[in-house]
Design a binder for these strands. Sequence first.
RNA 1: GGAGGUGUGGUGUAGUGGCCUAACAUGCAGCCCUGUCAAGGCUGAGAUCGCGGGUUCGAAUCCCGUCACUUCCGCCA
Length: 599
Amino acid sequence: MLPVDVRPDVIGRITCGSLTAADAESPVTLKGWVNRRRDLGGLIFIDLRDRFGLTQVVFNPEVDAGAHEIANKLRNEYVIQVDGIVRSRPEGTVNPKMATGEVEVEAHGITILNESKTPPFYINEEGDFDEALRLKYRYLDLRRPSMQNIMLLRHRVVKYMRDFLDDRGFVEVETPLLIRSTPEGARDFLVPSSAQPGEFYALPQSPQILKQLLMVSGLDRYFQIARCFRDEAQRADRQPEFSQLDIEMSFITPEDLMALMEQLMIEITENFTEKTIQQKPFPRMTYADALDRYGNDRPDLRYGMELQNVSHALRGTGFKAFAGVLEAGGQVKAIVVPGCGTYTRKQIDEITELAKSAGAKGLATIAITDEGVKSPIAKFLTETEITALTNGIGAGTGDLVLLVADQAPVVAKTLSALREEFGKRLELADPNVMAYAWIVEFPLLEWDEDGNRWDATHNPFCGYFEEDEALLQSDPGNIRSKQYDLVANGNELGGGSVRNHKRAQQEKVFDLMGLSEEIQMDRFGSILTALEYGAPPHGGIAFGLDRTIMLLAGEESIRDVIAFPKNNRGADVMFDAPAPVETGQLDDLGLMLKPAPIA
RNA sequence: GGAGGUGUGGUGUAGUGGCCUAACAUGCAGCCCUGUCAAGGCUGAGAUCGCGGGUUCGAAUCCCGUCACUUCCGCCA
């Protein structure tokens, strides 16, 4: 996947991945770890490993009895230095599976630089080890070539991003990690201050306001590999601290930015992976369309199985469960699962449970078998209705039709979950394809039932289409934002927008969100004021760097592309963090712990 | 906060009420072996089956509780 490093390296060391037949008869010194020892009694072979590769070393008592004697004591993961001579391997012993398989090093001297206990898991072969153990001994986990390849990939991709942006006039600026807490969005990680006891910094959830302020400064093009912090529950693709490729530009349109970012992602994908890009230029899909066809705003476009509205085929149906939903303004939608018409009662029950956990009240199924239609709801529907329904969505013999009837958001969520489940089960998604797409025209605001107010769907700084200005008063839920998300293979890789660059514009959004003038100034005074001093039109985007690397590397967990990740509970099991602190430290901060954790 | 899954020598697994005095592979230790490269051969050590309670004549296996890890829902402007 990645090019092998050249040799010798900057300090003149010969690495274990670099010797070739051309080096035969040269004296050489190698340093590295014992990957494997093969003791034939007389001869001892060692595979010496470093980051760059493996080289076989031979200890022959007739060549150097002293070195052979020491080699008897070697064990896996010992760190050694070998002095010897590069030899072409004897006829018939060349190993074509090794990059250095044409040669070996005949040892004339050996120094054991450090011994090693037997590691808790294998380093010299790949395997699926307990993740808690891997995290506890992360330094050993990272010694495995597969993990080192990921770290190397990450390094190279980030370097490519920096060079790409530098070539185009972007400036990398570091923004502070100790900032002010805002109760909007995710829960903040708080950092108490000893200079001002009782007051707290917060770690940034993203440098959003800071990068906009840099646009007001006239920096024009900013980027940063920004560390972000969110004190929320973890997932396979979510960590409490993570990295974003954060970008902001002045005087741009959404089109400008999407075109530039698209070029960057294409180049990275094609330069660093063997994966093919499903469609170039990346397809565009509106938020409404994505929700309608896939049930979510980050669809996996590598396979079909789209959601299909069958409400029209059931208009006037006598089946009360469906009729009731339709009368209440709901909908009935379906997906056709190919080849699953033979599912047993037990399997149907299983996916019904899945549907319920996604929020549906139930799941209706129609199996189309050789012996005809099998369905628990068949007796409630007329033959005409069933035929119209199955024909209308292209279901054929052997297929299983899954139907959900409810209000649109519940239908979308349920069928989206089912579609993804069957996408996995039936292996519909090609792992060698990257299906990028832009999702556009998000609603600017969504109604928050609990807070009884409008809330920003993306972030409150997101701009909106001027032609929708009138809707601010009449129909805020239908204002289209200037937001764009980049999705790939069912993941949201990044999102951004063209921002509000005038104070009045921005205040209108805050007003709709129910923020009083006082609160607006208290929380967002810096940016509101800055927008009054010649803020240029600007916009940007932020990519989840870890997630991007995860997809490029073909990994299923974000933890596998982070050197020292937290576990599912946000804990670092190597350092045992978080941990209690000494009373004196709390005293300095003017803090006192409550007697028991709040349940 | 909720739901599911998993937990058996160092590691990865098998064992779903008695045949378990817990099996297999690998790793580990010792011995043999001069062309191996997942070296090979022989011998050996190593697990109170996550923890606690219960059911049973009998529990790795069934039940309850608990802990840890993990996946998903909630949450993630």
